[in-house]
Nucleic acid binder design. Structure first.
Lengths: 343, 343
DNA sequence: CTGAAAGCGCTTACAG
DNA sequence: CTGAAAGCGCTTACAG
């Protein structure tokens, strides 16, 4: 009735606890008879090892934590996160580790989460979409918890990370719009307290400057990485500068919102206004017209994050590891690509 | 450098490990001097209790698992889940427990998750959107893990659950459409291997029968609870029965998809076809026109799930607990409600 | 109010 | 190949 322990398995199998443990952990140095006897007892009693106890002695735990520093609304609205989680999960599979997603939506819940993560429950943690001065990575590290950040960490934070080439991607997108002959290129930025928001905006600026143009603050609006934000920003931009003929949105979700606003305003895409997004998520293929976008594989990022984290865990060192993944511009119909936008 | 233990705190504070433990756990029976000395040591050493060790002796753990039995794509596409998670998190706050979301996307990952959940990491688990013959609830229970299911569990599964009144909600929706004078009322069902899908369909049938009508299989199509599924189903229904003048979709997301299909087919909503959804999620307010929908509070469901789970955990009994939450039809523009659909 | 001691369920040198 | 024993970091009767 109650949950069986190794002790009981050993007794039922007529061996010592040590031998039972060896069998359960697949040690090769156990006689067949003993092994089979233990296996029979395990099956009969329905024994499941208590990982908590095991952790205490092995000082290893079979899971890693993933923290996404966003209100659940955004986490669950953006396909970005689903993709990255898929990648992390795939990367973990080979190591038989469990992904544990920790959600916190208020300062109090954040403290609870911090306590959980430093309490020995996870081997290390992957942090996502950090804002401004989030102290979590430093707190965790100072408590001996290995940390890797997905995306560029806030300035001045000494922490390993895996990032996409946000600058290069934004640069390529805007360069493409310039080459299409567009002259009034606006941008809908991400939140400027997030490095990804800042860096993509910088790529936009640098591409303009590289073509001998001067960035114009009137052509910029922040869309908070949400669909609604993108739509609102586009409305504001059209109001302020009716002559806009192109827009670079720092995420696909915002680009989708911008498309709605352009449609509502009677502008044709791409004839009147060309649009390029960022992420190249499934959204890019479901918009009308299909969305040109900067491709980045969040699934690959997930795998890399796991790889970097486990390297750090295994090495037990304090080496800072950085990985920057390439991005690539995919041109579709929304910026003048062919009608039947096969990727 | 290395992580300090209670032992070291005790030594630094000049007390026994027992006293240090009492202070850390807020026991009242400790002299002030001792307390302050320990608190100083804790602060100075940066001591964080190892919850794993604590769990081993208290036989309690500070987290509960939440399993959503869906591919991440769907989890992250439907606001439904975000809401319910918010409710669970809120319900947990009072108990200082951590929500741990366990994601599995393949049979292998499912086995890993099952091992994790039975390994002593969680106090109990909340299971979501179970399909057909999922054996997880029974497996967990037989391994001593308290379980509560969100939504109606598969037939024949003896497990506690919290459900919404799916039948009553669907019945009210269809009754409303009949009262609006609609004569060819179609339905886009959820997956029929999920109880919620089956029960909402039954509510649709029963409302028709209560009005003396006979359900017509040609007017039913399954939409898999996704936006795309809803759109596709609506297209099929229109093709098959061009005279449809109303549709009850078993989720808002599917209703939104249906709206797109109706729009593309040139049907006016509600003039030509009235539409009612189910969930009353944020989607219902963001569609054009605003969507009539059966309201259910997923946040309340989340809180109830926590409450039922913790009751079971505290009681350590095998009592089956069931809670059914009311649903309420909210009439908006898509089925003839007022233009400026407040609420 | 406080400490010595037992014990939670497991793994792993160590000796045989 | 196997078992007795120590120990992981903590809590908690128990005795004082």
């Amino acid at each position: 009735m109650s949950i069986p322990t190794l002790e009981e398995v050993a007794r039922a199998a007529g061996v010592s606890r040590a031998t039972a443990s060896r069998v359960v952990n697949g040690s090769p140095s156990v006689r067949v008879e003993a092994r089979e006897s233990v296996e029979r007892a395990v099956a009969q009693l329905g024994y499941v090892p208590n990982r908590i106890s095991r952790s205490l002695v092995t000082r290893r735990v079979d899971s890693i934590g993933v923290v996404i520093a966003e209100p659940t609304g955004r986490i669950f609205g953006d396909p970005f996160f689903a993709e990255v989680l898929r990648g992390i999960s795939a990367g973990l599979a080979a190591r038989q580790m469990q992904l544990v997603l920790v959600i916190s939506q208020s300062p109090e819940e954040e403290r609870r989460a911090a306590r959980y993560l430093t309490g020995g429950h996870v081997e290390g943690v992957i942090l996502f979409s950090l804002h401004g001065d989030d102290g979590l990575p430093e707190y965790l590290q100072s408590n001996g918890v290995p940390v890797v950040v997905g995306g560029e960490p806030p300035r001045g934070t000494r922490v390993s990370y895996v990032d996409n080439d946000n600058h290069g991607g934004a640069f390529a997108a805007v360069k493409h719009l310039i080459e299409q002959g567009r002259t009034r290129i606006a941008t809908i930025t991400g939140p400027l307290d997030m490095p990804a928001g800042v860096t993509r905006r910088l790529g936009y600026h640098d591409a303009l400057r590289a073509a001998g143009r001067t960035p114009d603050a009137d052509l910029e609006e922040s869309g908070e990485f949400t669909r609604e934000g993108g739509q609102r920003s586009m409305e504001v931009l059209l109001q302020r500068c009716p002559d806009i003929d192109a827009v670079f949105a720092a995420s696909d979700l915002m680009a989708a919102g911008a498309l709605s606003a352009l449609y509502a305003a009677g502008r044709r895409v791409p004839e009147d206004v060309a649009v390029v997004g960022f992420d190249d998520s499934i959204i890019a293929l479901s918009t009308q017209p299909a969305l040109s976008s900067v491709h980045q594989s969040m699934e690959v990022m997930g795998r890399e994050l796991v790889s970097v984290l486990l390297q750090t865990v295994d090495a037990r060192d304090h080496v800072l590891r950085r990985v920057v993944l390439e991005t690539e511009l995919i041109v579709r119909q929304s910026s003048g690509g062919p009608q039947t936008g096969k990727n």
